[in-house]
Each structure stands twice: as structure tokens, then as C-alpha cells.
Design a protein around this nucleic acid. Structure first.
Lengths: 119, 119
DNA sequence: GTAACATACAACCAAATGGTTGTAGATGAG
DNA sequence: CTCATCTACAACCATTTGGTTGTATGTTAC
């Protein structure tokens, strides 16, 4: 997932109605209208929320008769988790580097290249 | 974290500039101006991004002389992860319930434990 | 075929978002 | 003290977002 994709993924998750849809659609047996019944907003509004979720792959739609069943795709959530992991990695990496530094500074004043500094 | 808090947390993460700030601020030794130098936008714009991150606790500021040093708070990322976990939980819960159901409806069948399935 | 239902989509609107510039208050340097 | 630096904040603007209503299309029921 590229940066823009992560943007869209987190944005999709940054709305409680959409998160609720994700939760309710795990069973995959609810149609768009059924889902829409649960919220104090118009059908079209819920439709838009589902469209946002669909665009980032958090849900998929499958036709059954004249309705569309919405189901959550757990793989997409894994992608979001990966994005979070990468952020935490920066922090963990720092801790590791600090540990390295401590290990290095133990001997008297040894300068290591500090090459990781790419910014 | 309540629903509105999760909204704000994911919204804060839904911007690549802000995520980059979170990454760069892990060392905690960069001031607002130093951080701002890295982006093709005004100082005030970066200031706003930092304010958004600060409001959800992803970074904190500490005064040093006339500048403010920005540092990432890894605990906040854990909160975001928890929110994701709760979404996944709905899905895992469903799978577990399906497994239960299978276990109940299929007595003679030999049930392989499948217990290793922790995701 | 006609009626009812489920969905899609366009047009519109208010509010929020992400950017700008400008002004003002602290703080350190000389 | 004076000046330059760092930050905060207000005002403003364009775009996006999240909602609305209305219209069109496809599908099942009768």
C-alpha cells in the first residue's frame, strides 16, 4: 500500500459509522438497505459510506437477487495494521539504536559512523 | 478511547505529512521549525499538523530555550492498534462462533482442533 | 406488463480540512 | 536594550467531506 493508499485507509476508518458498518458486515449476510436501517441518516448517505469502505477494500459487495450483500474483508484490516506497524517500527528502531549506542559508548569514546541518518 | 477519540486518532493518521512527522519525531530532539524545514509547505501549516497530532496524544512538546522539541508518544500508537484490534475482534469472534457451531452440528465428524488459528 | 423494491448516481449545501499570509508574544544572542 | 528567532494564533480561501433530495436503472413479485 502506497502513502496515498494509507491515507485513504485511515480516512475510511476515521468515521464511527463506517467502523460500525465494518463490524456489522463481518457476517456478510446484510444487504445495503439492511445495513442502512441501522443509522439515523438517509439510505444514500450510508451508500456513500459503504462506497468509501469498498474503495479501500474494507468491504466487498456481492449480488444476491436484487440486493447486494456487503461483507468485510479482514485482509484489508491487516493492511491497516501493517501501516501502524511501520510507524511503531521507527520507534522500536530508535530504541534498538539507543541500545547499540549504549553498547558502543561503553568503551571509551568510540565514534561509530552514524550512517543511518538519512535526513 | 471513545468513538470520537478513535475518529480523531485515525483522522490524525490519515495524512502522510503527519505520519512522517510521527516518524521523524521519535528521537524527540527536533524542534517545530526543524521539522517544518522538511516539507514543501509553510511553517504555519506544519504547526497545524503538529497540533492535530498533539491533540490526539501522538506527539508531545517540551520547551527547550526558545524552541519546542516534539517527541512521538508510542503509547498513543498502541491505542490506535487497540482500536484496530477491536474491529478485527468482530471478525475473529464470528469465526470462532462458526467453529463452535460446526463443533455442535457435527458430532460424529472428527473435529480437528484447529486451535492454532489465532488470527 | 405493472408495481414495488434495491441500488446507483447526480446535484446541491453546510461544515470541516488543509493550505496561505500576517500579526503578536516569548526567548536567547550580541 | 535591541534584534533575530521560535512559536502561537487569527483571518482568509479553495477543496473535500458528509449529509440531503431527486431521478434513473435493474430486479423480483403479482
Amino acid at each position: 500500500m502506497n502513502e496515498a493508499g494509507v491515507d485513504r485507509m485511515f480516512h475510511a476508518l476515521a468515521d464511527s459509522t463506517r467502523r460500525d458498518i465494518v463490524r456489522r458486515a463481518v457476517t456478510g449476510d446484510l444487504s445495503v438497505s439492511r445495513l442502512a436501517e441501522g443509522y439515523a441518516m438517509s439510505f444514500a448517505a450510508v451508500q456513500k459510506h459503504i462506497a468509501v469502505l469498498e474503495k479501500v477494500g474494507l468491504v466487498t459487495k456481492k449480488r444476491r437477487g436484487r440486493e447486494y450483500l456487503v461483507s468485510t474483508d479482514p485482509d484489508a484490516l491487516v493492511l491497516a495494521r501493517l501501516a501502524l506497524d511501520q510507524l511503531e517500527e521507527a520507534w522500536r528502531g530508535r530504541v534498538d539504536r539507543m541500545a547499540d549506542l549504549l553498547a558502543e559508548t561503553a568503551p571509551p569514546e568510540q565514534r561509530t559512523p552514524t550512517k543511518g541518518q538519512d535526513r
